[in-house]
Simulated scan of single mutants.
Amino acid sequence: MECLYFSADRCRSCTLMTVPYELQLQSKVERCQELLSDFGQLAFLPAQPSPEQGFRNKAKMVISGTTEHPTIGILDADGHGVDLRNCGVIDPALRAMFPVVERFIHELKLIPYDVPRRKGELKHVILTLSDTGAIMVRWVLRTKKHFVALRNSLPQFVEKMPPGSVVSVNFLPEHKAVLEGSEEIILTRRTTLQFELNGIPMHLRPQGFFQTNTHIAAALYRQARQWIDDVNPESLWDLYSGVGGFALHCAGEGRTVHGIETSAEAVEAASTSAASLGLDGVQFIVGDATEYALGAGWAPDAVIVNPPRRGISAELAAWLNASDVEHLIYSSCNAPSLARDLKRLDKFTPQLARVMDMFPQTEHFEVIVKLQRSAA
């Protein structure tokens, strides 16, 4: 893949841009095998490749410049805007929305936020694309100065969007390096962006988390479903369940599934999906994964963990070791913390692993591992 932004040294986010994709994938597998080399019995399935470009279903764009000449992209080292609206790793359907965003910045006289001067209103525009073609657009403002203008322009803005789309406004009053604040107002009647992965409906609310590569997310859920169906547990926990991807895919007749997630919005979205599928045996609960496990008073037959980059806690690893859980699936976006946690999980034997290339053109990747309780 060629990128003029990379060649011109305007953006270096994609550190492997000049490396042929086959070599990228090979190096990720080799890196993962190196990190997990202490587990000699661990076999690696063929890596799951991704499309090389246009794979990102989310665009987190910094708005800078002026009302007349806004930049849509990132900030340089000095806090000035670098326009990246033709970024090749972003899905073309999202890139097609950038001229619409710019038009509304002009027409509504929205004032881009100037980071060095700490002045202005419009900080970011965050766009997410569903595999159905619908788009979620989130305007991130410093104050409510432009809110009425955005709300009143909603009919005209929605006209430029695909059916089933969602528009919201987020408020980030603080001057700090984050993308969004805690307050969000949804402007459209539709409040969730619906995905259809492997025939499973999933709902994403504005502040919910969803994988940035829909193609790989679908493959990841299929792999977990296959491994769970192979052992056919009667009970399953999906810890760090997010919007319910693993839990919904692994639900089965006669199988009880509990999804545990700290985000109340994500739990609400996952519960909506379960209800639409008529999954009476699937329940999503707001809570901390470690606290839930330690306080549940019982253990399921199988557990899936999909933690953030820091991995699972030492307490959760110790509980899993001491529990009656027989089967464990660990999905990780950070192989070093995965390697640490697999060493902690010394009562389980890692059997199979698969690298899932969630982030082409970078050194990052997802890896999913199947573990079995070791024989006594």
Rank of each mutant, 00 (worst) to 15 (best):
V303G: 10
E291L: 05
D341V: 06
A302Y: 02
G287D: 08
C333Q: 08
A335T: 15
A293E: 09
A314W: 00
Y292V: 05
L338K: 12
D341M: 08
L320D: 01
A314V: 15
A317P: 02
L320G: 01
A302H: 04
G295K: 06
Q351T: 13
A293M: 11
R344N: 12
A317N: 08
A322D: 13
S332G: 09
A335H: 09
K343F: 01
S323K: 05
E326V: 11
S337W: 02
L352A: 02
L294D: 04
I304Y: 02
G297E: 10
D301M: 08
H327N: 11
S337N: 10
Q351P: 00
F359G: 05
W319I: 06
T349H: 03
P307I: 04
I304M: 11
A322M: 10
S331V: 15
V286T: 15
A293G: 13
W298K: 11
D324K: 15
R354K: 14
R310V: 12
K343C: 05
S313H: 05
A293N: 10
R340V: 08
G295P: 01
A299M: 02
R344W: 14
V355Y: 02
G311Y: 00
G287V: 01
S331E: 14
K347P: 00
A296F: 12
W319V: 01
K347T: 09
A299C: 10
L342V: 13
K343T: 13
Y330S: 10
I312E: 09
A296G: 00
D341A: 09
R309S: 04
L316H: 01
L316E: 04
Y330D: 10
S332P: 04
V355L: 14
I312Q: 08
N306D: 15
L345Q: 06
A289H: 09
K343A: 14
V325K: 09
A335F: 04
P300R: 03
S332I: 07
L294R: 07
S331W: 00
L320Q: 00
T349F: 00
A318V: 01
P350K: 07
A293H: 05
H327V: 12
A299V: 09
A317L: 07
T349K: 07
E291W: 03
A335P: 15
S331L: 14
R344E: 10
S332R: 09
A296D: 08
P360E: 09
G311F: 01
V286A: 10
